[in-house]
Design a protein around this nucleic acid. Structure first.
Lengths: 250, 250
DNA sequence: CGCAAATTTGAGAGCATTCAACTCCTGTGG
DNA sequence: CCACAGGAGTTGAATGCTCTCAAATTTGCG
């Protein structure tokens, strides 16, 4: 039902409902107009469509406008790792600035659209608009934070905690975007979740079943309803088992 | 006894041997002079000294000048994860820009010194100097890349591959700084290595012993000599003995 | 409606962890 | 200079979490 789609999606940053989550945040109306001039809107792309490939030269960065995408990096041995799921208002391709070539491949998880920001122009504009410069740095910094939290997850948490963390994280981000925090549709496959969390697909499947048994949530395919996010949070923060005692009944 | 110390360490960016690895890279002499004016040099700090704590308000970012430091993030449950080891020329505290408070704690691994860059002044200056702005973005982007490679490591690689990757990575970065790529001293404890790689201390210890048995390297305490980095690389990229691809999806 | 892909479920194996004991450093004080 | 304390690092054994393999079942889509 509820998807990652946002309803009011206008063409210009000025009237975009994502304004406060995206690059425009904190910019004056006139500066916004200048930003608007360099933004290229792309027509929606379908599921599985690739926005750009790892290794390609980077000329633009992108902001998710609607839908959702995943970014993946390939290891030398062919293994691939999903480094993030991105919702509307989030910037992608920021890792490309370092070398001028994309360090990840970005793929649409569902029908999605993005705004394209030609980097040279964005860079120039950010020299003239302090608010834009700050916000660009902030968003890059936020990406670093995200990755470091993900590192903490893979390095310190067990399977149960990882899945709970992801669900709560998605929930919070959807809520930020005006959607339900408790009921949503996962736009990514189980395999994507597993890969992102460094787990096997089967483990994710089993855990979702267990969470449901324990009354933490309800899951039907990709439709998820969080029933007890407080206990989910407890699961993440405290020792495993602390939140759940299946001793209670034989 | 090669350490992470660099030999020629002058006070000004202009004559700093790390110029090309650090923020000054690609800047003209006159722009460099302006950067120099805002940089505050700090006296060396000893082992275990904390440069800043997670949660503290951020007013400056820092560049490692000599020695080496680690950055760690604390989970809500008290568990902590080392998100990176930083060598001279590398910027730290970049994740703080998003919220204005430090997202990690930075601790010296050995006697080290850093350059302090007051963020407001740096931001202002980067509005005036395109080269500086670009380089700041590049270094932030590089940090994102680093974290994403680390994610790939924790998500896709087994213990053996993780340790090999770290050793090769350190080797390459030391070489960039004019030190030996094959013989170096680890400034971090086994426990730090284990934490960074998401492993138990005992596992790291066992692996180092095994690598030595296999003639890949020689290790005596924190002194490491890489004997066959080609084979180490092979270990990371393929998997010679156990031809099993770890973990789902390809 | 039917096939292919995605997901779930079950059973057994393996890699890494945990627990425990021991050894080796390193720095300190006699 | 050496003894000693305490942390750091190593080694061994056993448990366990998660993976792999295998097969059933459902879902999605043409």
């Amino acid at each position: 039902m509820a998807s990652f789609q946002l309803h009011e999606m206008r063409r210009a940053c000025t009237s975009c409902s994502l304004r406060e989550l995206c690059l425009p945040d904190g910019m004056s109306a006139e500066d916004l107009a200048r930003l608007d001039e360099i933004v290229m809107r792309r027509r929606p792309v379908g599921r599985q469509a690739v926005l750009f490939h790892q290794g390609e030269p980077m000329s633009s960065i992108y902001a998710v406008r609607s839908g959702s995408v995943k970014s993946t990096t390939l290891a030398t041995d062919g293994g691939e790792q999903i480094t993030g799921f991105h919702l509307p208002g989030e910037l992608i391709g920021l890792d490309a600035i370092a070398t001028g070539t994309h360090g990840c491949t970005v793929t649409a998880l569902e029908t999605s659209s993005v705004c394209e920001l030609p980097f040279d122009q964005l860079d120039m504009l950010s020299g003239q608009i302090p608010g834009l410069r700050r916000q660009l740095l902030r968003l890059m910094s936020r990406e670093i934070r995200h990755d470091q939290r993900a590192l903490l997850m893979l390095g310190q948490k067990n399977a149960e905690q990882r899945l709970a963390t992801l669900l709560l994280n998605l929930s919070a981000r959807l809520q930020q975007r005006g959607l339900s925090a408790t009921r949503f549709r996962l736009s990514m496959a189980r395999g994507d979740i597993a890969n992102y969390l460094g787990l096997a697909v089967e483990t994710v499947s089993r855990l979702l079943a267990r969470f449901q048994e324990q009354g933490l949530l309800q899951v039907a395919g990709r439709e998820v309803t969080l029933l007890d996010s407080a206990r989910l949070r407890l699961l993440v923060e405290c020792e495993p088992d602390a939140a759940v005692t299946h001793q209670g009944r034989g």
